[in-house]
Design a protein around this nucleic acid. Structure first.
Lengths: 238, 238
DNA sequence: TTGCTTTCCTGACAAAAGTCATATTCCTGC
DNA sequence: GCAGGAATATGACTTTTGTCAGGAAAGCAA
């Protein structure tokens, strides 16, 4: 299953260019390359479990990962999706807490693991990185506050439309502006866990969006045909 | 209304002892005392508005403040409540963003305002404070993630019970363990904005909790008579 | 292929919560 | 004290959403 692979060179990593590590010095990157561990994970494997102690930082080189909390009623709430260039586990690491969520692979992934000491040392010598990380955590916090507001004030229908638009922003590929495919394999159940509703409700609403011509299905993926209509439904900035 | 008052000495401030500034050196505290501005605010006044640019950090010396986002349908979602010793505005400041929420006085308050430059300088020279702040922001993020999960998975009834228990933790005074009064003046509307529901629903549920003997009303305030029952209702850790 | 499992879909129904209308109570200023 | 307004309370009704049950389709292993 999880297969150790040869360390990818951080200094050459394409995913890094768009990540928080984009300004880290060559020297420090080489050190990271030496310190870290790279692993190939298949879909369904879990990177870490809620409640356990973080031993380092995960960095996604390729693939897709979901971060979610399990709830008492057996469901799960997806907190965020991580893709190439994203980091996982820094909140627990910097907050000196246990993981508050679990992380599971959605699409086969190459994941680098940077041991805690190595990461902490890097932060100590690269104050620019530390500052950027702080900025990023603050931004995340802002996003979460927005999500809280959305959850308590908007209907499932509005939230689903908004979620589709956000997924389009992040995972949209090919086609002109009016027809972009969301290139990530999300089950209806996953989608429901992001929106915060029941799977059946998502299925029903997607069918509706489809028959209204706002979206279409391509295999397991969704194509956004009419983003404006979805924006209107989601009550975006209105 | 807002009345400038003589600067309170940070180095002598009792509220500070339980705040993030509890380990800041005497020297730096004196500098803060010189740099800051203290203002007395009456209930209903607003410290800052969503969408504006942060010019500094607010520190609550006394009183209660609500931080909330206004939504398109005219309602508001309370993101957090701040009391003596709490800071406001650091997320926007450190994230280098505009305020994502507004802050309004719930109970007459003494609020100190530390200019941005002064705060940034303090962070630059006191790395321990910076680290503590990072830790705090990460912790906040964890709390928000929990709130997101709670909002999408629990009923209003469960959330209200949980909210009452949290308010009891933070604002509970006098009485033995089975009878603590929540010593903060929250209107039903405010409570609804915290829980994320309609005012009428809160009123109805509170009446129900009252007739079930779980709570009682003392003036505008609520006394928790049976925390265990509320914990059960809130499905806490179950 | 075949059979098996998982995911997706649909319908019927129930429960939860929001909305609207209307009292009633509580404050506050005069 | 009283008037007027705000906050609280309650009822009736509607809408939204969740739940349960059952079936179709798609993926997967042998």
């Amino acid at each position: 299953m999880a297969k150790k692979i040869e360390n990818l060179a951080c200094e050459l990593c394409q995913s890094r260019k768009f990540s928080l590590f984009n300004e880290v010095s060559q020297e420090h990157l080489c050190q990271l390359t030496a310190d870290k561990n790279c692993v190939y994970h298949k879909k369904g494997q879990t990177l870490f479990y809620e409640g356990t102690r973080p031993l380092g930082l995960f960095c996604i080189n390729e693939g897709a990962v979901k971060v979610y909390k399990s709830t008492s009623n057996g469901k799960e709430q997806i907190i965020r999706l991580a893709k190439a260039g994203d980091f996982l586990g820094y909140r627990a690491l910097l907050g000196e807490e246990h993981y508050a969520a679990s992380a599971t692979i959605l699409e086969d992934a190459k994941v680098c693991f940077i041991p805690k000491e190595s990461f902490i040392h890097l932060l100590a010598v690269d104050s620019n990185l530390y500052r950027k990380l702080m900025k990023s955590v603050c931004h995340e916090l802002g996003l979460m506050e927005e999500k809280v507001t959305e959850l308590s004030q908007k209907t499932v229908r509005e939230r689903l439309a908004h979620t589709l638009l956000m997924l389009r922003e992040t995972y949209g590929i090919d086609g002109d502006d009016n027809s972009r495919k969301i290139d990530i394999a999300l089950s209806r159940e996953d989608l429901a866990s992001i929106v915060g509703t029941a799977t059946e409700t998502v299925i029903r609403l997607l069918s509706e969006f489809k028959s209204d011509g706002h979206i279409s299905f391509e295999g397991k993926k969704i194509r956004i045909l009419n983003p404006k209509a979805l924006a209107k439904i989601s009550d975006f900035y209105a």
